[in-house]
Amino acid sequence: MFQRFRRNRLNSHLRALVREYHVRADDFIYPLFVRSGEGIKTEVASMPGVFQMSIDEAIRECDTLKALGIYSIILFGIPDVKDSVGSDALDENGIIATAVKAIKRAHPEMFVVTDLCFCEYTDHGHCGIIDHVHETVDNDATLAISGQQAIIHAQAGADMIAPSGMMDGIIETLRTALDGNGFENLPVMSYSTKFASGYYGPFRDVAESTPSFGDRATYQMDPANRREAIAESIADEMQGADILMVKPALAYLDIIRDIREATSLPLAVYNVSGEYAMLKHAGAAGLIDYERVMMETMLGFKRAGADIIISYHAKEVAGLL
């Protein structure tokens, strides 16, 4: 006798009872892009619904997020001045430090994650100090200033730090710096498996971080490499990461599952700008049922093994939930 799987599908309440995975508002971290000034809320053409905001507008945005049940944000800074070493990122009065202090004053219950990198702050758009001989980022010189950046974020009141530059040894470096300065309880969410992806294009519009030469293939991962992807995340776990991450998400569901099966640490995925833009523009063109495809995509991330989803869709998903 064959099994009738449809018995559990014929009633909507029974379908809900046997549903294996669920998407919740508190699965999400919402990205915010902050810059100096007041009353600034500038929409990015390539990412409808995503804005560069002054800090006062970001504070107001947190009211909207809380009303939707979203209490976690990740901050990206857009400085007024960029230079070869990303000095604004090393300034206790720089845009990120200032934004963290202001948001935590206004919304102490918000969980504020800071992206730790240099690509938004350098005039060359790369993720650290340049090795001009090899035309790539100098790994160890960048580690030295990354520790300084972490302390600035921690002193400003960040609740978690998320290093995104894909420097070898970054987690050990940050953990040593944080622990040595009394921040041993501050968690680190590693961008542990981050690919050199074509899906990042719209992000570089909003963050103003397009490289002025070359690309990031010398330090971000080759999209073709599966075993290396697992090894990258496990290495960060061994160095003391508290949460691992796969970025991008949609084209790397197999990697999410591989890493989920290789570690017991919480696993985040970054639903990146290109993934967001594709759904937004396809929905606007009437090519897809936007809300249905959006929710199906989020469920796919959870089913693949994600505990946390960083997504520009977060407000819309929470509204539907």
Rank of each mutant, 00 (worst) to 15 (best):
G319Y: 10
A306T: 02
G198W: 01
R24V: 00
H132C: 04
P223Y: 04
E316F: 02
G201Q: 06
T218I: 01
S84A: 14
K41C: 07
D138S: 15
P163R: 09
E61M: 06
D236W: 02
Y290L: 14
V188E: 04
R257G: 04
G240I: 12
T136R: 15
L299Q: 12
I310E: 05
D242A: 04
V206W: 07
S84F: 07
G305L: 10
I73G: 05
R4H: 08
R260D: 05
T122E: 00
G165H: 04
K315D: 05
L75F: 10
A249D: 00
Q3N: 12
T122K: 00
A154F: 07
A99C: 03
H13F: 14
P266T: 09
I170F: 01
D27S: 04
P223A: 03
D56H: 10
A229Y: 01
Q52T: 14
A224T: 14
A251L: 08
I171W: 04
G283K: 09
I96W: 03
I145M: 09
K82F: 09
Y191V: 02
R24Y: 07
A306Y: 03
E208C: 12
G180W: 08
R35P: 00
Y121M: 02
I310V: 15
V85H: 11
S192W: 06
L68V: 04
R216N: 09
D242Q: 05
S311N: 11
D131P: 05
V133A: 15
L250M: 13
L250A: 13
F111E: 11
S311P: 10
E296R: 07
S197L: 10
G125E: 00
S46Q: 12
Y121I: 01
C62I: 13
N181Y: 03
E208A: 14
G37N: 06
A144G: 01
A158C: 01
H22G: 00
G157Y: 04
Y199F: 15
G305A: 06
E38T: 14
K315W: 06
A45D: 14
T210A: 12
T210G: 01
A177T: 08
D80T: 13
H313A: 11
K280C: 09
A102R: 14
K66L: 13
I151H: 03
P223M: 07
G169D: 10
D222L: 06
L10R: 15
R15F: 04
F203P: 02
R35T: 15
I96P: 03
K101T: 13
I95P: 05
E261A: 11
V100W: 11
D222F: 06
D123H: 12
I255G: 00
G128Q: 13
F203H: 10
